[in-house]
Write a protein that binds this DNA or RNA. Structure first.
Length: 607
DNA sequence: CGACTTCTGCTAAGTGTCAA
DNA sequence: TTGACACTTAGCAGAAGTCG
């Protein structure tokens, strides 16, 4: 009896009680590509070419109804999981002999899958494929996902496949990709093969051999237990967001962009920034550097480099005619004759000329030149950039410092108080609180009231910090400004130094006091949370908050960091905030699963 | 009761991105 | 480049709890 037969009346597939592990290649192909489909299944195999006396790749295609005949004819070892249009890769050739296996020729999406190469993963490599299936199913169950249609042993790894109702790539490719990604992301630690995720992938056929090892379906046991899922049901069960939520998110992004564009279009006090302002600022910086380094004529060793940089920037600011005129006019400043300058800058001029004839969508041939490149080429240091008050030719450190300055200025303009101010006020309060307690014998509640209705916790903290600062032993008294000479520069510098030193020591003492007790738990970890947990802690008991699920790479690091180490997860705590609660639940659940699978991996390896 | 910790909302600080 | 804004991180503060 065949495991898979076709119902004559309906043309539909009949699955018998036969063992799935004994499925033949054509039966497996017929399950993936049902007989009622008019789209193409593309097969790949190899055949012995008697003329050339070697094995050659053989790719061919068949309709769902012709799978048996095609497989018998071509003896393939692979079949595409999705279906293609009956079009040929070459003009005038037959699609059956020369199928077009590319994304743009996809006719129907009908499966999602993950290929697991677990044999090189430390936590899993000791397991046999049959043992591994247990863990795969367990993981799928723990996520509440539908069980796969089948799990096939490819001879080296596992193919976990969910066949689903056919959907059009044009309508559903985005969702299908998200589904495929979500499934595969769940198996990164088990060695999911990134290269086998594309919609055009072909996978091994059951009943064939892979380097002598049999390829067969290990789960489910019987052919009639094989089920095809509803695509929408799969999406609902597996995707973290619904299609509507994803649409709403995209709409929000569009809205934000429109709002930003409207804001920019509106007239403001600040100058409107354009490509011209960009290059003009760059040029201003460049001129400052050149005037400073070469007050007269640029010396021989640098003239070509300097003129080349200038010419490339000018090319973005003016028409070719103006560029030529400018090069001629500036030539003496760079130590060139007009003729020499034009010769040396020929390529810049030619590119500027051809840029005038560039059509839409074509690349601009002018040399792209950015501030960082110029800065490195000219070896401009932070000190030089600061001294010349450069705006663009500055190192990243200075750029960051300027951005921070701007942000602070903007905050102050909005009336925000600085942390230093808050801290110095608190220090004064702490000193006053100590005095009130020791001299007037007030309780902390009374002190809190006396300090203007602050909280008792605030008093605690203020006193703690004031005590820490009081413990700083005064160093040998130095000469005062009066003693030295009130107006001397030396006195001023010494005074500044002393003030800075005192401030530094106070800050250190406050920081040390804060560290003496238990410090704030790190509630908001970066996206590196996984790696941080793995690296920092053999048994991490702290809470994890405000953390987005990790990316694939982060997950990979987390898993490799935790393998073979003791690990525990704290009990979830109450979160008022819905988003925080969701994220915390996600992490707790995720890490528990990980702990369990690692523990199972270890106990299995111990046996 | 004081000293201290834990939890959680709020916000300053800092960084990245965007306009072309 | 500048300025505005989104976003993450770190720190602050108050409430509530624990401990001796």
């Amino acid at each position: 009896m065949n495991a898979v037969t076709i119902e004559p009346a309906t043309g539909l597939l009949c699955l018998s009680r036969a063992l799935a592990s004994e499925l033949l290649p054509f039966e497996h192909a017929a399950i993936i590509h049902p007989s009622d489909t008019r789209t193409a299944a593309i097969f790949r195999g190899s055949w012995f070419n008697p003329d050339r006396r070697c094995w050659e790749d053989n790719t061919f295609a068949a309709h769902g109804g012709n799978v048996e005949e095609a497989v018998a004819r071509g003896t393939p070892r692979f079949v595409t999981m999705n279906a293609f249009r009956t079009r040929s890769a070459c003009f005038k050739s037959d699609w059956r002999e020369n199928p077009w296996k590319e994304t743009q020729n996809l006719a129907a999406l009908q499966a999602v899958w993950t290929e697991l190469d677990f044999h090189d993963k430390p936590a899993w490599k000791h397991l046999s494929p049959a043992e591994m299936i247990f863990h795969v199913i367990e993981r799928i169950r723990s996520r509440g996902w539908p069980l796969p249609t089948y799990i096939l042993c490819s001879g080296s790894g596992l193919h976990v496949v969910w066949l689903h109702t056919r959907v059009s790539p044009r309508k559903a490719m985005g969702i299908w990709k998200a589904l495929q990604q979500a499934l595969n992301d769940a198996f990164i630690d088990m060695g999911r093969d990134k290269a086998a995720m594309s919609a055009t992938t072909n996978l091994r056929l059951a009943g064939t051999k892979n380097e002598g090892r049999p390829v067969s379906i290990l789960w489910p046991v019987h052919v009639d237990e094989i089920v095809r899922h509803d695509f929408d049901e799969l999406c609902r069960a597996i995707l973290p967001y619904t299609v509507d939520e994803a649409r709403a998110y995209k709409a929000k992004l569009r809205e934000q962009k429109t709002a930003r564009q409207a804001r920019i279009a509106a007239p403001t006090g600040t100058p409107r920034l354009t490509g011209t302002t960009f290059y003009a600022t760059l040029l201003a910086d460049l001129d400052k550097v050149m005037t400073d380094r070469f007050p007269g004529v640029v010396d021989d060793g640098h003239r070509n480099e300097m003129l080349f940089i200038h010419a490339r920037v000018w090319a973005w600011l003016m028409e070719p005619d103006e560029l030529i005129a400018r090069i001629k006019a500036e030539a003496p400043r760079f130590g060139f004759t007009q003729r020499e300058a034009l010769t040396h800058m020929r390529s810049v001029i030619n590119r500027a000329k051809s840029a005038c004839n560039v059509g839409r969508g074509q690349a601009d041939p002018r040399y792209k030149i950015g501030p960082q490149r110029i800065r490195v080429d000219l070896g401009i240091t932070a000190r030089e950039a600061k001294r010349l008050d450069l705006r663009m030719l500055i190192p990243p450190s200075l750029r960051r410092a300027r951005a921070a300055e701007r942000a602070e200025k903007s905050r102050r303009a909005r009336g925000a108080a600085s942390r230093a101010e808050q801290q110095s006020v608190r220090l004064e309060h702490g000193r006053e609180a100590i005095r009130l307690r020791e001299v007037e014998g007030l309780t902390r509640i009374q002190i809190a009231e006396r300090l203007g209705g602050v909280s008792p916790s605030y008093v605690d903290k203020a006193v703690k910090e004031a005590k820490a600062v009081a413990l700083i032993r005064p160093k040998r008294a130095r000469k005062t400004k009066e003693e030295l000479n009130e107006d001397s520069l030396e006195a001023e510098i010494l005074d500044q130094k002393r003030e800075r030193r005192i401030a530094d020591r106070e800050a250190e003492a406050i920081a040390a006091a804060a560290m003496a007790g238990s410090h704030d738990s790190s509630r908001y970890m970066s996206n590196d949370a996984g790696a941080l947990v793995a690296a920092e802690s053999p048994a991490y008991h702290g809470d994890i908050h405000g953390v987005a699920p990790p990316s694939s790479e982060e997950h990979e690091r987390l898993v490799s960091g935790l393998a073979g180490r003791p690990f525990s997860v704290s009990a979830p705590r109450q979160h008022a905030n819905e988003e925080a609660r969701r994220r915390h639940a996600w992490w707790t659940d995720h890490l528990r699963q990980l702990t369990r699978s690692l523990a199972e991996g270890r106990s299995a390896s111990a046996r």
